[in-house]
Simulated assay, not measured.
Amino acid sequence: MTKGFLTVALLLLSNVFMTLAWYGHLELKKITWLQGLGLAGVILMSWGLAFFEYIFQVPANRLGFKDNGGPFSLFQLKIIQEAISLIVFMFFAVYVFKSDKLAWNYLVGFGFIVLAVFFIFKKN
């Protein structure tokens, strides 16, 4: 199960960089020296962060894919990534960016994602 754990850990790291690349630029107004950064600068900064996302994401999928000796199918890898993505996003939105509160309807929606994980991993 080491490959499975390593796959999840790498996807977690990947999603931290993905969240920063996709949504971090929305928080630039809080950083004085980055406030004047234009759209081109924001895009380049996001690409730079996305580079690190892929440094973790590509090995995670290669390591975790069952045809490469890993424990997961393509569908399982995707649903794991989506669940991790939402968890990381929730953490950043509530505790890092402090832009939102965790409301009951968000928790219900995340619960449905957890159910999706359950059904994707359910044996036929």
Rank of each mutant, 00 (worst) to 15 (best):
I87D: 00
A40L: 12
L115G: 09
I79G: 05
N15R: 11
S14W: 06
S73F: 03
L34T: 04
I31G: 00
V58M: 08
V42L: 05
S46G: 07
L44F: 10
N61S: 08
G48I: 02
E82M: 04
K78Y: 14
K101R: 11
K66R: 09
I80A: 07
T2Y: 07
V88P: 07
I120V: 15
W22R: 08
L12G: 08
A103S: 14
T2G: 09
K3I: 08
V88S: 03
V108T: 12
V96P: 00
G38D: 15
G64P: 04
W33L: 13
A83I: 04
Q35H: 08
Y95I: 06
Y95F: 15
F97K: 11
G36D: 13
F112Q: 02
L12N: 01
N61E: 08
W47Y: 12
V94L: 06
G38W: 13
L11M: 14
N105Q: 15
A93P: 08
M18N: 06
G4K: 04
W33K: 04
Q76E: 13
L6C: 08
I87M: 06
F121Q: 01
I113N: 02
L20Q: 15
V117Y: 05
F97R: 02
A116E: 06
T32K: 14
G109K: 13
G36C: 13
G38N: 15
L11V: 05
M45R: 04
L115A: 13
Q76V: 02
V114G: 02
F121W: 01
L74S: 11
M90Q: 07
Q76C: 03
V114W: 01
M45A: 14
K29S: 12
L115V: 15
